[in-house]
Computed example of a mutant assay.
Amino acid sequence: MPKSLTRVLIISIWIFLLACFLYGPKFSSASKDSINVFTWGGILNEEIIQSFEKKTGIRVNVNNYSSNEELILKLKATEGQGYDLVIPSDYAVSILVKNQLIKELDRKKLPFFHQLLPELLGHFFDPENHYSIPLFWEVYGLGIDRDFFTKLFIPSWSMIFDPKLVDYRIVMVNDPIEAIEIAAFYLCGPISSLSKNQAEKVKDLLLQQKPWVAAYATSRADYFLATKNSPLAVASSSYIFRSKRNFDFIDFVVPKEGSFISIENLCIPKTCDKEILVYQFINHLYQKESIRVYWDSFRLFPALDDKQDLDFDLQAHKIFYGLAEDFKKYHFFKNLLPQQKMRDIWVEIKVN
């Protein structure tokens, strides 16, 4: 085959794959009795979806993304067409609003709205909650091996950054936004941006930390605890609480200095023309049986101020029912630096 023809063929294949990546959801069922939901993988339990489909006859087609950045990219590329409901994290909501990719919600169709935890409402990414409502939330902290940390201690971010304290291997988050924000919080406290000098100090801190990092992992952080490859992992509460069900030596603690909260929200793309069906599904997600299923499955805290009897252990009970008192200690992940600068820092950390 001539080289020119081979080159054309390769380019054509890449164009096709890119189109599938950006426009794939349009190839899903277009039935008037179906909706397309774009969400994180492993968040919407199949049991919840099946019970809704059986009750209403409405089919739910689920497409997954692996990051908020992927969600934002696809919605920009398609202008939201092909999607009926999305589940972005807090900071991503503000980007979707700014780009006019999601529409205002009709609270008259959300009878549970008054039951939402007030601490989860009215934040920077949607101050009046015109465009989003919280579905569930989690906090970031330290997953620890109680067999290793046998003495009483006060949880602190110094347990992953201070070379005078760290004589063990740790697992660090594998997301540059999260890693840089945690390091910046340790050095500077809660801030909204980093100066050039501060950014260099954050990079140096993460480079200093690297020798005792067993792995950079997000979804598998609990694996290193469970297999005793590391006695400490920086992770979200949901991953650690899931492992606690099977390994009684695993625990979750929140550093004394404070930590970060992540809220997953429901939003309706601006091009959605199936709002009647979407609101039925949204209301299904906030029913008691649904809340119980996704707590049991994913250990994500519900957004409803509902005192139903979920199987919280002592630490989970403390976090959920202490939200009002402790919320001032929680902060949101934000882009402290331009995306390119953040990527440059992360690449330098990974390659050194």
Rank of each mutant, 00 (worst) to 15 (best):
T218H: 04
I10P: 05
E289L: 02
A303M: 09
G57Y: 05
G57E: 07
W137M: 09
N36K: 03
P111L: 01
E264T: 11
C272Q: 09
F125C: 11
L121I: 08
E119F: 00
L310G: 07
I170R: 13
Y294H: 07
I72Y: 14
S132D: 12
S290D: 05
I144L: 03
R146I: 04
G41I: 11
I182T: 14
T227P: 00
R220S: 15
D147P: 01
D222R: 07
D145C: 05
K244E: 04
K341S: 13
D167K: 12
F21M: 12
E104Y: 02
I261H: 00
N36I: 02
N99K: 10
W157M: 10
T150F: 06
D204W: 06
I10A: 12
I268S: 01
K201T: 07
E348C: 05
E275N: 09
A77G: 03
I43C: 08
A77Y: 04
F153S: 07
L121R: 15
P255Y: 08
Y294Q: 00
P269N: 03
V254F: 02
Q115M: 01
N265R: 15
K55P: 02
S290Q: 03
W14Y: 11
V93Q: 09
S28M: 14
Y239H: 13
F332Q: 10
V139R: 00
K270Y: 08
K164L: 12
L22Q: 04
D296Q: 15
D162E: 12
G122W: 00
I11Y: 09
I87Q: 11
S192Y: 11
K203F: 06
N197I: 14
D296G: 01
S237G: 02
F113I: 09
F38D: 00
L71P: 01
T218P: 03
F153H: 09
I263S: 04
F136P: 02
P338Q: 11
G42E: 11
L187W: 02
A184M: 08
N99F: 00
Y294I: 02
H123A: 06
L96A: 06
Q198Y: 05
L232E: 10
N335G: 12
Y286K: 02
I154V: 15
A19Y: 11
I49H: 05
F21D: 13
F224I: 12
P2D: 14
E69V: 11
F125M: 15
K54D: 08
I263D: 03
V60Y: 00
P163D: 03
Y168R: 09
D175F: 06
T150G: 01
F252N: 02
P302Y: 12
Y23F: 15
I240W: 00
K329R: 14
E46S: 13
W157C: 11
H123W: 03
I180G: 01
F185V: 14
D106Q: 03
K228F: 00
A226D: 14
F185H: 10
A199Y: 04
L22E: 06
Q208R: 09
P176L: 08
K341G: 02
S28G: 10
K151R: 13
S156W: 10
A214T: 11
A221T: 01
E128P: 04
S262E: 08
I263E: 03
F153K: 07
F52E: 05
E70R: 10
L142C: 06
K98E: 15
